[in-house]
């Protein structure tokens, strides 16, 4: 049964990727087509998820939004996760000066409000998907750095690591084997849950001029635009949220499964 759940989760993720990639073919209407006479219509056969405040087809916007939001969220999360955990581990293992310098850098980044990071990136890289992803990943990196540094410090003093050290294992190997496994328990679920943060962040960045410009849809700007209509058209904001919830649930299940597989593999090895 667990296997089936994992398969369904995988199916959902693939379906979303599929929708995102083939948005041009799947969307029944252009995502930007304004139709003022048919605004705020509830779901119906012609518009399966209804229409938005400008009469645009919500389903069409949604499939395009998946494309942009997943691209931004996954790109930025992956970069933040990779850089954050790698540097966190390095910091914990090497200690002394490296630790001090890295901590300094990330303390400064952490103390910078998200939208100031966004402005800085905007001034350096400019607007667009890359700029947005860079800003979000920079905002999220300190948490991964801190978590992995803290987890790694805890693991590195454990008895069995001492034993491994005594047996002549290199620090890198120790790091990858023991620290990596420990991190899976914390950093991966944190990353999965950060997905909704990353998607929401993208929308807030549009306030300072980063993020995507209208009429291009993203899950974030759909939520921030549609939330003002919860009293008159609650289905509008429910749709992007349901998608995010579904994604997070599926990724959580998959992460667990992956963790289990990995553990089994490592134990066998």
């Amino acid at each position: 049964m667990r296997g089936l759940v994992a398969k369904i989760s995988l199916g959902i993720i693939f379906a979303e990727i599929f929708l995102a990639l083939l948005a041009n073919f799947i969307a029944p209407y252009p995502y930007y087509r304004v139709d003022l006479e048919n605004r705020l219509r509830p779901p119906s056969p012609t518009h399966i998820l209804g229409t938005d405040p400008l009469g645009r087809d919500v389903f069409s916007r949604l499939v395009y939004a998946l494309r942009i939001s997943f691209a931004v969220a996954i790109l930025s999360l992956a970069v933040a996760l990779l850089i954050g955990t790698a540097l966190g581990m390095v910091s914990a293992i090497l200690g002394s000066v490296t630790d001090a310098v890295l901590s300094w850098i990330f303390d400064v980044v952490y103390a910078m409000p998200g939208f100031f990071i966004a402005i800085a990136i905007l001034l350096i890289i400019g607007s667009g998907v890359m700029g947005t992803a860079a800003a979000i990943s920079l905002t999220l990196t300190p948490i991964f750095f801190r978590l992995s540094r803290s987890a790694a410090r805890g693991v590195l003093v454990k008895q069995y690591v001492e034993v491994a050290k005594a047996l002549g294992a290199s620090t890198l190997r120790i790091a990858l084997n023991y620290v990596g496994r420990e991190l899976m328990a914390v950093v991966i679920p944190a990353a999965v849950y950060m997905l909704s943060d990353a998607i929401a962040l993208e929308a807030t960045l549009s306030v300072v001029g980063l993020g995507v410009n209208p009429p291009t849809p993203s899950l974030g700007n759909m939520i921030s635009e549609y939330k003002d209509y919860v009293f008159v058209a609650p289905w509008l904001v429910a749709t992007p949220i349901a998608i995010i919830a579904l994604t997070i649930a599926s990724l959580n299940i998959l992460a667990k499964e992956l963790d289990k597989k990995l553990n089994a593999f490592l134990e066998a090895a």
Binding site: Y32, P53, P214, E225
Partner: peptide, 24 residues
């Protein structure tokens, strides 16, 4: 911001392409 998107569509119909830029 909503109005901008409506204007964009009307101008497209007469052959003028408009790019919307949001600003603080």
């Amino acid at each position: 911001v909503q109005l901008a998107q409506v204007v964009q569509q009307y101008l497209k119909a007469v052959g003028v392409d408009v790019e919307i830029v949001q600003m603080e």
